[in-house]
Design a protein around this nucleic acid. Sequence first.
DNA 1: AGTGAGATACTACCATGGCATAAGGCTGCG
DNA 2: CGCAGCCTTATGCCATGGTAGTATCTCACT
Lengths: 230, 230
Amino acid sequence: MPPTAAAGYELDPKLPIGAQVYGLLKRMIIGLVFKPNEALSEKELALRLGVSRTPVREALIRLAEETLVDVFPQRGTIVSPIRVAEVMEAQFLREALEAAVTRRAAEQPSAALIRDLSRLIDDQHHAANAGRPEDYMPLDEAFHRTISEGTGMPRSWRLIQGVKGQMDRVRFLSLPNKAHLLLLTEQHAEIFKAIETQDPDRAEAAMRHHLKEVLKTIHELAAEMPAIFA
Amino acid sequence: MPPTAAAGYELDPKLPIGAQVYGLLKRMIIGLVFKPNEALSEKELALRLGVSRTPVREALIRLAEETLVDVFPQRGTIVSPIRVAEVMEAQFLREALEAAVTRRAAEQPSAALIRDLSRLIDDQHHAANAGRPEDYMPLDEAFHRTISEGTGMPRSWRLIQGVKGQMDRVRFLSLPNKAHLLLLTEQHAEIFKAIETQDPDRAEAAMRHHLKEVLKTIHELAAEMPAIFA
DNA sequence: AGTGAGATACTACCATGGCATAAGGCTGCG
DNA sequence: CGCAGCCTTATGCCATGGTAGTATCTCACT
């Protein structure tokens, strides 16, 4: 999880500042530290992060491309509201991409891919039983990233990540419980088995089914908390 | 050397400079005005375009995300070489996205979509018979964009555009002749008919077949002119 | 002649300052 | 009392200067 809004932004001056600011702001937006419709000022962010406005601006431009912020020229920048239509489109695009990649993975899985996925599922099983979502989420992310990158498609993961932000923000609204984490792990295992046994149809179907889990919560949440939706 | 670059590439000071520089550089890279592996200096580009280095830098960052340029921190920026593996991945991702969108379009096509596509195909037929590729390319682009945006998925077009650059650069190497333009139009018409008659399977298949046309030329070209490939 | 170390010249990177523009409040008039 | 127009204030946008880092070139030394 990101540091809180109040304290502890530790930026490493040795690494490119712009990229760090981007990652930090993105995590804070997804983690709802910055709420939808909240104003984000270049000047104020730069002040609070202890950097100049240039890298902040670069980060905001990148976030705007992912529609996590809305930039109004000469007026201001706000955290974008959660627009149901956009979340649905993101879901659709992610499913299209990840289903295709998973199918490809199942066609010719490398030994390294099998090994990495297997290990990740073990770790997920432990984290799920511990019941701590904050430990689980990075493992979930790693699972999906590994399928893309382990199949020789690094760019597909970057595209998926770009659309995923909208969905993650919704997901963050509902803290999954232990049972839910175990269910997710079970679905991951199913995807893995299909890849391992080189069954593309089954792998694609399992991935599509898995991704639809997120969708289920959206409509419930939209009804519960309409304030932060567009 | 004049303060502005080659004629026809001038910038409107009233519009956001950064976005204009991005579009201009992208067109020049795809159009091979800037050759693969050619060095691009922030300072020199700014000088030639008559703007400051800041918007040039912003444009280069965006182009780097599309892997049209490679930025080496503190060293320099070059036009990325045409990497066959990247072109193949771009092709794969584009097909996954556009096949899904086309299927969706065929499920519930709006009247406006039918009308717009129909008109575009007429225009393409005329441009193809005239045999001028430079007139045809914008129409081709519009056809694909219209399917995405006319189906309520504006973001899908942005993703497609992001990966398309790599492929367009390859396509630019082989000037299509009149027969080829007519073939493309025929394929567009087939996609259109499938959408119009609400036949998702046929629409998706037609789009996949259409997109594979580009692939055919890649390997031939890679053999012909290995110099500009990675 | 070959090699290594240092100076140099280049790069992208970040900081800062001035600018134009648009929203919102205030004032004066109807 | 209501509305229109000005003005203040804040914003993002662009220009420019300084900094740190890297490759190359030079020259001394082996």
